[in-house]
Design a protein around this nucleic acid. Structure first.
Lengths: 115, 115
DNA sequence: CTCGATGCAAAAGATTTGCACCCGA
DNA sequence: TCGGGTGCAAATCTTTTGCATCGAG
């Protein structure tokens, strides 16, 4: 798996790899992705109204996603939370382990194209 | 569908309804949920590491979710965003249409039970 | 009777799994 | 030779769909 910018679905990875590894099957990709996920190398993302899962390399910098509902483009956004999660944790008597923020919208390009 | 507190999966709805409506099939439930979703009566949720979709009634108050990864309990949390999304919109030249925040953790009860 | 809702069974699509095989250490 | 990784095919699970039927108006 290369240092891809954008998260990819298993099938996208499959087609991307196909040329160089014509024999690599989709099941193998899923198998490896699962191993990677268990070892915190990739993270699985679920996107609204999209049936397949997407996978992204876990980078050093914690971030979230801004997704164009028109073209499907995904970009990273900074985590806006400072002490919010600590407060939430205390307020609800939870031990917070993870959080996901996903913002959906229409990107600049798609706004233009739509006109 | 009753005024359920917690989001339910199609199957959970199915079993919940079964006693009173023994003939109602899962496919019908999916069909109705899809209609409800199109008409903004229910919202479909994707939860990390959970394969089925969950459905919640759309309430007046905009909110997000705090989910216990141990027992699966889901509770509403307030939306912490004030002008953040406006800024994000401008900064990225997006037209923001939706956003989801999901916080995962271990609830008080599960923390206790684990000991 | 007519139309929309539902039952029913099969299809579709994503993901997983069992088993056999192959290849490198 | 051994063990892990992969191919392959089938299974599994969720969700959707086509078609026939049922029932309220």
């Amino acid at each position: 798996m290369s240092a891809e910018d954008m998260p990819l679905s298993a099938k996208e990875i499959y087609y991307k790899i196909k040329d160089n590894n014509p024999h690599l099957k989709l099941s193998t990709i899923y198998r490896n992705l699962n191993v990677f996920e268990k070892n915190n190398i990739v993270r699985k993302l679920n996107i609204n109204n999209v049936t397949e899962s997407y996978f992204e390399l876990i980078k050093e910098n914690h971030h979230h996603h801004l997704i164009c509902i028109s073209c499907g483009h995904i970009q990273d956004i900074e985590c806006p939370f400072d002490d919010y999660l600590d407060k939430l944790e205390k307020k609800n008597n939870y031990e917070v382990t993870d959080h996901r923020l996903t913002v959906y919208g229409i990107c600049h390009q798609c706004k233009k194209d739509d006109k």
